[in-house]
C-alpha cells in the first residue's frame, strides 16, 4: 500500500507542470496578495502587531480569542481613520505599539480594559497605515481583504507562539522570556519611531 502511494506521489511529482505561483498580474488573488504584502513588508506595522500578540497571551491564556471581536471592530474603524489620520498614522501606530510593548514588558499582570483598548487601537491603526493615502472606497475590497488577513495572521501568529510556549511551561522564567521579547520589540520600535520622525 505504502509502496503504491510512494510511486503515485513520485509519478505525480515528475509529471507536475511548472509552478506559476505569484505570476498573475490581475485578478482577485493578486489584489489580496498585494494587500497582504503591504502589511508583511512594513516593519512599522509588523512590530506593533507582534507586540500586541505577546501582550494578549501574557494577559490571558486565550487572550487573542477573547480580544478578537474588539480587534475586528478596530480594523473596521481603521478604514475611515485612514482618511482622518493621513500621514500621521504611521507615527501614531508606532507610538501606540511602543506603549503596548512597554506595558507587556514591565507590568506583571494586565487589566482587561487595557488589553482590549490596545487591541482596538492597534487593529484600527494598522488598517489606517495600510490604507494611508487612499480614499475610503478607492481600493478594491479584495485588497482590503488581503490587508485584514495579514493583520490578523501576524497578530494571531505571535499570540499563538507566545500562548503555546506559556502553556507548555508554567515556570516563572517563561513569562520572563516573553517580557524580555516585548522589551526588545519596544526598543526596536523606539528607534524606528525616531527614524520615522527624523526629517530627511
Amino acid at each position: 500500500m505504502l509502496k503504491r502511494l510512494f510511486f503515485l506521489t513520485l509519478g505525480g511529482l515528475l509529471s507536475a507542470p511548472q509552478a506559476h505561483a505569484h505570476s498573475y498580474d490581475e485578478g482577485l488573488l493578486a489584489q489580496i496578495e498585494t494587500g497582504g504584502m503591504v502589511v508583511f513588508t512594513a516593519p512599522e506595522t509588523l512590530l506593533p502587531l507582534l507586540a500586541l500578540g505577546v501582550l494578549l497571551s501574557l494577559w490571558q491564556p486565550c487572550g487573542m480569542t477573547q480580544g478578537w471581536p474588539m480587534f475586528l471592530a478596530g480594523q473596521a474603524a481603521g478604514i475611515p481613520a485612514a482618511v482622518l489620520l493621513g500621514d500621521a498614522s504611521v507615527t501614531v501606530l508606532l507610538a501606540t505599539g511602543l506603549t503596548v510593548a512597554v506595558l507587556a514588558a514591565l507590568l506583571p499582570r494586565h487589566h482587561t480594559a487595557v488589553a482590549l483598548l490596545a487591541t482596538f487601537a492597534l487593529g484600527g491603526l494598522a488598517v489606517a497605515v495600510a490604507l494611508d493615502g487612499h480614499g475610503i472606497w478607492e481600493l478594491p475590497p479584495a485588497f482590503l481583504l488581503g490587508v485584514v488577513v495579514a493583520i490578523n495572521l501576524t497578530t494571531a501568529g505571535a499570540a499563538v507562539i507566545a500562548g503555546v510556549a506559556l502553556s507548555l511551561s508554567t515556570a516563572f522564567w517563561m513569562r520572563v522570556v516573553w517580557r524580555v521579547a516585548a522589551s526588545w520589540l519596544a526598543a526596536t520600535m523606539t528607534l524606528i519611531l525616531a527614524f520615522t520622525v527624523t526629517p530627511g
Partner: peptide
C-alpha cells in the same frame, strides 16, 4: 528589560 528600552530612548 530596562536597559534596552532606555538605551533605545538614548539612541
Amino acid at each position: 528589560v530596562v536597559f534596552p528600552m532606555v538605551m533605545a530612548f538614548g539612541g
